[in-house]
Design a binder for these strands. Structure first.
Lengths: 379, 379
DNA sequence: CCGTTTATCTTCGAAATCGAAGGAAGTGAG
DNA sequence: CTCACTTCCTTCGATTTCGAAGATAAACGG
């Protein structure tokens, strides 16, 4: 039934431009797609006939005739996305433009292993679909983020330190067996970066730092996610300059993670007799102006900033977006900025923006939507 | 006369695939270009009629009919390329496939300023063209490398530390005024990276380190050069871990360049009473098994490797190619390897190749040819 | 109010592209 | 040698895309 719908090929390109909000009218589609205006009109006609696009009033004039605004039809389809954490999963449904229809969080132990976890996620998808999506609207793609590296070639999880029982498990194949649809599996920090990228129009090269219990980072190059061999973006196991020496779980001394992650800060505070369980607790302490906490966070920011220094000189991003639960502590980003400004080449920092992440706590789910939309609308 | 030749548009794509050696037959062109085989045949016919392509015998069978091999016609055109150094310039002519017709090196002081230098280069181009290129063969592009950062937006040189008088000079405009053709201006390490990339087919992500008097680096992402804001690839002003403290010319303490560049090593050796003027002299000492020189180079390699560690985790390249005059000293690459293998994530080093550069001393000129070919054959 | 300008969108014949079918030229197995 | 099979390339009618011209709709400026 939904096998021959024009979501791929040239129509797919047009659909994607509307879904991502880059184009709102036939004229904009023509400019951005490179197709002739007449061809765009023909294809848009088809997309409207197929019930994927709809016309909705008119936009604002740019000095001439007002454009007839196009938007995605609600019946165009939905995407099911999840983001697996160590002890819980956030999951939900998005429309093709990436707007959430429903998002919820459930407890879920990733240590239960891949089969149990993924089946539980899929059951949750089915329940949400039954409750929130009318019968005629097709599910068009399924995606999930995982807290570990994913081999982009095989879509398997590889050497995940926090996912016992998942090593080399074919996550995508398992999901594809249940849903005969495009399936996405990606590292959670990468998903967050993909979600963040949409909030920085005009910026093609981004680094997105996730400062939470651990320290993650995703890289966007030329507007699309850089995967490398599956571990790209890792900054947590970089050696930092230090007087003392701490051994990291990875077996090497003085990793950034051992000094500046939420877990490391919590350990120091607990040692000092302050009760801390989650990174959010540290933020609370900082906002309450507890001197030790503030000093610790500032120190962590400086360390992260020193690592970023190397990467900024090398990669020359337009934007460094700082997210994660720890990023709510203001001194973090301030001291990251200070370290980068001080030490980087002027040419590299000339127009560099270092700012809080814009996509909010559902960034990873939104990122999964963005990447899935690509997969759904490509030949 | 050569204004309407089909080097752009769809024919340009085909021409480029042949010129870069990616395709040698109509069938390969069809596979790589995405066009239908019938369309490819038509366009190739046109290119042959226009004298840009030629048929040359047949290739080897892959189990069926033998392909009719296509190659670039010698009359298709030439590219004029140069690579400016501090005290000399290498320049020459390439055919469109990037093969050198003639390459020579001349003394040339970059401190004479942009006008004098560029005019001298252009005069040299004209002389080479008159001597080595028959009348019917058109010049299709001009490109030059410079030993400093280039703003990719304006093609001006920005804040060049070793190019007095060049700051903000519109190099591309100056050349374009003399040649009404596509003009390329690029940092020399970036050109080297572009040239090297062609020698690593199958590898999409490369870091190319140039270890000479200074330390340069170029980055190739998804097969094309990453420019960032013009300074991308810089690794020379990264802070290294050190007991002592050396102030770098950039004003910061403990830059990699101050410890591991050819200039830094030469300074130490001279201090110790060993006569050294160029990085090549250091290589000679190492090959003669002079212990101090070997130990110094090994130390430099380890320091470079420690910096690369961070970048390998972050960027996950397929290949790190090490070139530059100092790279001829074997211990350099060996100790870079050791540092990277020891400290990087296994996933990042799993299939990583760290190897000597393959493109030789004309890498930058060949890279200029590759990038110019792009400019010439694009709409 | 009424032309001028600008931008959006459609119409329609020309051109480019596709894809199915088939011919050409090879390999390899019996 | 013959026959099946593979790959390469061309032919030709169908489809898609283009681009010039015009229709539509609004802003702007007397």
């Amino acid at each position: 039934m939904n096998q021959r719908l024009p979501v791929q090929g040239p129509q797919g390109d047009l659909l994607r431009l509307v879904a991502t909000g880059k184009a709102e009218s036939r004229a904009e589609l023509a400019r951005l797609s490179g197709l002739a205006a007449s061809s765009v009109s023909l294809r848009v006609e088809e997309l409207i006939d197929a019930g994927l696009l709809a016309e909705e009033g008119s936009g604002t004039s740019r000095g001439g005739r007002r454009p007839r605004r196009l938007r995605l039809s609600p019946e165009a389809g939905v995407l099911a996305v999840a983001d697996l954490g160590a002890h819980h999963v956030r999951l939900g449904l998005l429309d093709l433009s990436g707007s959430p229809l429903v998002i919820e969080e459930r407890p879920c132990e990733i240590s239960d292993g891949p089969r149990a976890t993924l089946d539980r996620v899929a059951d949750a998808f089915d329940a949400l679909l039954a409750e929130h999506v009318p019968a005629g609207t097709p599910l068009r793609g399924v995606g999930t983020g995982v807290p570990g590296p994913v081999d982009p070639a095989t879509l398997r999880v590889v050497t995940p330190s926090r996912m016992p029982g998942w090593n080399d498990f074919p996550v995508a194949d398992h999901l594809a067996a249940r849903y005969d649809l495009p399936v996405l599996v990606e590292n959670d920090a990468n998903l967050m970066a993909a979600g963040e990228a949409r909030h920085w129009p005009g910026s093609e090269n981004l680094m997105v730092v996730k400062a939470g219990t651990g320290i993650g980072c995703g890289v966007v190059v030329n507007g699309s996610l850089h995967r490398g061999r599956g571990a790209a973006g890792d900054i947590s196991h970089v050696r930092v300059r230090s007087d003392s020496s701490i051994l990291c779980a990875c077996g090497h001394p003085d990793c950034l993670e051992a000094y500046a992650s939420g877990a490391a800060l919590a350990a120091v505070l607990t040692e000092a007799g302050v009760e801390v369980t989650r990174p959010a607790d540290i933020v609370t302490l900082v906002n309450d102006a507890v001197p030790e906490a503030t000093s610790l966070v500032r120190n962590a920011g400086r360390r992260i900033g020193e690592v970023l220094t190397v990467l900024v000189n090398f990669f020359n991003p337009d934007v460094i977006a700082v997210g994660g639960s720890l990023s709510a502590a203001e001194p973090l980003i301030t001291s990251i900025r200070a370290a980068v400004w001080e030490r980087c080449l002027p040419l590299a920092t000339r127009d560099l923006e270092i700012a809080p992440a814009r996509a909010g706590r559902d960034a990873a789910l939104l990122g999964a939507g963005t990447l899935l939309l690509e997969a759904v609308t490509r030949p």
